[in-house]
Design a protein around this nucleic acid. Structure first.
Lengths: 192, 192
DNA sequence: CTCGGTGGTGAACGCGCATTAACCTGACGC
DNA sequence: GCGTCAGGTTAATGCGCGTTCACCACCGAG
């Protein structure tokens, strides 16, 4: 909440967006700096005027989405009316985000190992907190669950939610959205 | 079913096993041929006495597990007593395999894009058939489901099942097995 | 004993690619 | 009009890595 800049997509953002799509399609190592530049209308080393390096782009996009996921997730939890509603809200938020940012989702769980050490740790922490957010609501709902079990269940639910951006979509987005959300909450309900 | 060789792990297999673990840990591009050799006790180019190249190793392991997954899956379906039992059997089989071969699972859905074109197609076909296996049983169970919907649901279920090999296991394997299986069938049951 | 093949070795090669260097251009404050 | 600075360009650099080469040692068959 510092300067609150408005929605003219700056050059950096445009680069990050096309990078996300390329990385999602062919993998971080599968796309060269030259290709990425070309896809942005400029070519090759010009990217270094905007980013210190290729890894830095990956880092910036992954850190930022992890932060966003966690921040909004937290907000939805405090806004929610009880643990059951919170679980539902988290699932809805995640599926909304995942369908709206498919490339980022696939990059996030395919290429996070290509991050520079420092950023990798940061993303790991954020992701872990995010999963714990769901796990703790789950445990509030079913106190008999052990912490590791709840964590595993939450992780599995996100696995379900994240699986679909990868697929070619022969199915309507709205239908897919509700399908995934329903499946996820049902799965979470089956954690006896 | 030709010569039916017995269980002395041949050198090729040992290499493939350690390769699977390394690939799973650091990604296909993240492990060099030299490292892989070193991990096998031999070093570097010696691998070329067993495989025509690095990609060939990946290809061999991915094709073989895809085939195994599909073959056993088919068998379990025909053996099963009705669609509901078939769904359950498929889920059980997959979770059993996934927990028994975690590295292969993570490699399979992280690194399949690094396959040589031909093998990539083959794996894609096998995987698609495998998903369709579950999808069709699901449709037999709930005829109101459209084909794309059933397919998406099946894929989501596998996403759930495949998500956990990635996790550090602070939870017992048996408990995890039943947890995942229950979550998966519950999710598949929520496909209204 | 010798000979061929299997599985190993370390050195060399070549390429792709991220990164850097050197240089250019146009917009703008002064 | 003129430095300067942001944003490009192409050419060079250097390195990591997959792959190939030339050579070696053991070993079982003849």
């Amino acid at each position: 909440m510092t300067t609150t800049e408005q929605a003219e997509p700056t050059r950096r953002e445009q680069i990050l967006a096309t990078a996300a799509e390329l990385f999602a399609a062919r993998g971080f190592h599968g796309v060269s700096v030259a290709e990425l530049g070309a896809a942005c209308g400029i070519s090759g080393p010009a990217l270094y005027k905007h980013f210190p390096g290729k890894q830095a782009m990956l880092a910036e996009m992954l850190v930022s989405i992890s932060e966003q996921l966690l921040a909004v997730g937290r907000e939805r939890v405090v806004t929610a009316d009880g643990p059951a509603a919170a679980v539902r809200a988290l699932v809805d938020w995640h599926v909304e985000f995942a369908l709206g940012h498919r490339p980022l989702i696939v990059v996030q769980d395919r290429d996070w190992e290509s991050l520079p050490e420092q950023a990798r740790e940061q993303v790991r922490r954020l992701q872990r907190s995010y999963v714990d957010l769901l796990a703790s609501q789950l445990r509030a709902l079913r106190p008999e669950l052990s912490k590791p079990t709840a964590h595993a269940a939450a992780q599995a639910a996100f696995g379900l939610l994240n699986s679909t951006p990868r697929a070619g979509h022969a199915i309507d987005d709205d239908e897919l959205r509700t399908l995934l959300a329903n499946m996820a909450v049902a799965a979470l309900g089956a954690t006896t």
